[in-house]
């Protein structure tokens, strides 16, 4: 794989996705060892640069880097007042002066990771840019599915919730389509609009339409700041119409996988007994997240250097 950056899954060839997933499955074994660390990326510097709050994605990347023996550095930047473009480039120049090998960036503006990737020699991993993409999340979701199914061809994955504004949904839609799966989406009209037809998805209006046909149901997190505004009346109403509760789950296929990128709003988009139930793979997703990020760092880093005859 001759790739410097991971910006998104749109257009990524199937062979590359497969290579990342199979590497990740191997990387997971490192986490099961007594010493959960291998020397692969010793001396490499991975910087996480998060312009939006995130605990789990950032710590997952950092743990992945540490398990490969890379050094890690974390920048928490608030977006408050400064002009974003300028701040981003200036911050990046400062970090560049520290000679990092990779920057993991999350930014509110779509395209921010691409800008850095074009402008700097270090590898850039997109950890979420606006409503564009969040590729490492989709890769860990696909690893979780492939643990259960093997190949994803012909499988149906339902994505339910604010599909319109979800970078997790978009990356999954691109990745799953490439891997031969079918994606069905459902959500309130304001969150699942007609423009989605431009993507390789089938649009349905209610969760009840998708529950029965899905091999996996991916519930998106409802951003509470959107509740009570124009898009959504209330948490209770959302739960009633679009939440995955036990009652709805009983109408799903018996072997269905229930997924959620986290953090979950119990009782809103997902019922507590579903999140903790036997079909839930939510915590496997977390474990797989570390493995997928290890695989990404392994594939992206170390494109130059000394050549040894083993």
């Amino acid at each position: 794989m001759e790739r410097k950056d991971l910006l998104g899954l749109r257009g990524m060839p199937r062979a590359e996705i497969e290579a990342l997933i199979s590497t990740a499955a191997r990387m997971r074994q490192v986490g099961e060892r007594r010493i959960k660390k291998v020397p692969t990326l010793r001396g490499r510097l991975v910087v996480s640069l998060f312009f939006e709050n995130s605990t789990r994605t950032r710590t997952s990347f950092e743990l992945a880097a540490k398990r490969l023996s890379a050094d890690t550095l974390s920048f928490n930047v608030s977006t408050s007042s400064t002009a974003k473009g300028e701040t981003l480039m200036d911050t990046a120049r400062n970090i560049h002066a520290m000679q990092p090998d990779c920057i993991v960036i999350r930014h509110a503006s779509a395209g921010a990771p691409a800008l850095l990737a074009r402008s700097f020699p270090f590898s850039v991993i997109n950890a979420g840019d606006g409503i564009n993409e969040h590729p490492s999340q989709a890769l860990l979701d696909m690893l979780t599915m492939s643990d259960h199914w093997g190949a994803l061809d012909g499988r149906t994955v339902a994505i339910v919730g604010d599909v319109q504004h979800s970078r997790v949904a978009r990356s999954n839609i691109f990745g799953l389509a490439t891997m031969g799966a079918r994606v069905v989406v459902a959500g309130p009209g304001t969150m699942c609009r007609r423009e989605l037809a431009a993507l390789p998805v089938t649009r349905r209006h209610t969760i009840d339409e998708v529950v029965g046909e899905a091999d996996a149901i991916m519930m998106l997190r409802i951003q509470r700041e959107r509740l009570g505004k124009a898009m959504l009346p209330s948490a209770r109403e959302y739960a009633a119409f679009y939440g995955l509760d036990l009652d709805r789950l009983q109408r799903a296929r018996p072997e269905v996988l229930v997924m959620h990128p986290g953090p979950i709003n119990r009782g809103v988009e997902i019922g507590a007994e579903v999140a903790d139930g036997g079909r839930s793979v939510i915590l496997d997703q977390v474990t797989n997240g570390i493995a997928v990020r290890m695989a990404l760092l392994y594939h992206l880093l170390g494109r130059e250097g000394p050549v040894d005859e083993g």
């Binding site: 020397p39 692969t40 990326l41 392994y298 000394p306 040894d308 083993g310």
Partner: peptide, 10 residues
């Protein structure tokens, strides 16, 4: 593989 000293070969 993860213990090799020649990972950075391009």
């Amino acid at each position: 593989t993860l213990y090799r000293d020649d990972l950075y070969t391009g």
